[in-house]
Simulated scan of single mutants.
Amino acid sequence: MTRAKAVPETVTVHIPFRLVKRGGRKEIQLPDGASGHSKMDNTLIKALARAFRWKRMLESGEFVTIAELAEREGIAPSYMTRVLRLTLLAPDIVDAILNGQQDMRLTSARLLEPLPINWTRQIELFD
């Protein structure tokens, strides 16, 4: 009978990276040629969270109109309607944003513009 080689208790992994300060924040900078996930866009993530929260508040009957909810939130109703359109995004696009893997052209300013309702056409815009 052959004995298996012992498994070490500790494994050391070396990952080359640098911490860089940008605008008061620390970011991880990978070496040239290293692949990594795109940076998470906190502005987009926050806009998505707001949109789905506001949609839930309207659908639950907590607020009857967008104007009423906008007043409570202290924002313009026109802005709220633009943000609420994010709830109509294709699930693939929402997942990409939440995972930090969205196309660089997919910005909050671009998403607040009118987009096609058809999910396939939305995805084609950013492929």
Rank of each mutant, 00 (worst) to 15 (best):
T2Q: 06
T2Y: 01
T2D: 07
R3H: 08
R3T: 10
R3D: 13
A6S: 10
A6V: 11
A6C: 04
A6F: 03
T12V: 14
V13M: 10
H14T: 14
H14F: 07
I15W: 07
P16W: 03
F17P: 00
F17T: 01
R18W: 08
L19V: 15
L19K: 09
L19I: 15
L19A: 13
K21E: 11
K21R: 13
G24C: 12
K26R: 07
K26G: 05
I28L: 09
I28G: 04
I28K: 09
Q29L: 12
L30S: 04
P31L: 14
D32E: 14
G33C: 09
A34F: 10
S35W: 13
G36Q: 08
G36M: 09
H37D: 12
H37V: 04
S38G: 08
S38C: 02
K39D: 08
D41K: 02
L44T: 08
A47G: 04
A47C: 03
A47T: 01
A49E: 15
A49T: 14
R50T: 07
R50E: 15
R50M: 07
A51G: 05
F52Y: 15
R53H: 06
W54P: 03
W54E: 06
K55E: 15
K55W: 12
R56C: 03
E59F: 06
S60Q: 03
G61S: 06
F63L: 05
F63P: 03
F63H: 11
T65N: 07
I66A: 08
I66Q: 11
A67H: 08
A70I: 05
A70K: 01
A70N: 01
A70C: 08
E71Y: 11
R72M: 02
R72E: 14
G74R: 07
G74I: 02
P77W: 01
P77A: 07
S78V: 12
S78M: 10
Y79S: 05
T81M: 06
L84R: 04
L84G: 08
L86A: 13
L86R: 14
T87H: 00
A90L: 01
P91W: 00
P91I: 02
I93Y: 01
I93E: 01
V94L: 11
D95M: 11
D95Q: 13
L98A: 12
N99F: 00
G100F: 00
G100V: 09
Q101C: 02
Q101S: 13
Q102F: 01
D103Y: 01
R105T: 05
R105I: 06
S108A: 11
L111E: 05
P114L: 06
P114A: 09
P114D: 08
L115H: 10
I117E: 05
I117R: 10
I117H: 11
I117Y: 09
N118R: 15
N118E: 14
I123F: 05
L125R: 15
L125P: 12
D127W: 03
